[in-house]
Design a protein around this nucleic acid. Sequence first.
DNA 1: TCAACACATCATTACATACTGATACGATGA
DNA 2: TCATCGTATCAGTATGTAATGATGTGTTGA
Lengths: 114, 114
Amino acid sequence: MNPIIQTDVIELKAKLFRGLADASRLKVLEALCAEPLTVSAIVAATQLSQSNVSNHLSCLHDCGLVARQQQGRFVYYRLSDPRVGELINLATSLLADVAQGVYACTRYTGEMNQ
Amino acid sequence: MNPIIQTDVIELKAKLFRGLADASRLKVLEALCAEPLTVSAIVAATQLSQSNVSNHLSCLHDCGLVARQQQGRFVYYRLSDPRVGELINLATSLLADVAQGVYACTRYTGEMNQ
DNA sequence: TCAACACATCATTACATACTGATACGATGA
DNA sequence: TCATCGTATCAGTATGTAATGATGTGTTGA
C-alpha cells in the first residue's frame, strides 16, 4: 500500500513543476489554454522553431500535461487537465504580488553576484 | 503602464515555477507548510546538508516564496504567501491523475531512449 | 509513385544550476 | 575576549537540459 516513498513523490512533483518551469513550455501551454492547436499553429503562436516546439510537446506529453490527437497530417494538442491551466493562473496571481522578488532572484541566473 | 511585455511575464512565471521545480526546494517548502522553521530545523527535516539548504533558502527568499525573520542566532523561515502552498497542493492533486505520465517522462533525464 | 507537407527525432553545442567541502560572518554566553 | 553555535557564502565539479540544424517518418494529393 505504499509503492512510492515520500522522496519519490517529491521527485515526481518537482518533475511536474519542471514541465512548467520553462518560458517556451509556458508559452506553449498558455497558447493551449484557449483551444487545441496543431503543432504549426503553436509554432506560429509562440514564434519558436518547429523542432523546438516538437521537443517541448514531446516532453509535455510524456509528462501527461498535454494530450494529442492526430487528424490527417495534423496533430492537435490540448491541455490534458484543467488543473494545468489552474496552476498557471495561480502562479500568475502569485506573481503579481511577488514580482519584485522574482526579479531580484538572480542567484542561479548568473547575471550578477561576481 | 506596460513595464513588462508578455515575454517577460512568461519568463518571470517560468522562474517562479523553477523555484518549485526541484526536489530539495520542495522538501524545504513542504516542511514550511506546517510552520515556520529555523535553518537547522529544515536541515533536520529534509536531511539535506546545511550549505545546500542555505543556498536553496536564499534562492527561495530572493524569489519571494519564503520570508525570513531573525531571532537571536536563529533565522526563521516561512512561506511568504498561502498560494505557495496552494500551488503545491494543486500539483499534488494533479499528480495523482497524471503520475503514470510523469513517470514516463524520461526525455530529459536520460535514463532510456538509447 | 512522387512531391509536398506536417511533424518527430537525432547529434551537437552551450549554458544553467545542484551539490559538496571549506570558509566566512554574526550573535551569544562564559 | 574568546569559543561556540547558527547561518551564509564561495570555488569547484558534475550534470541536466534548452536550442539548433539536419535528417527521418508518416500523410496527403497529383
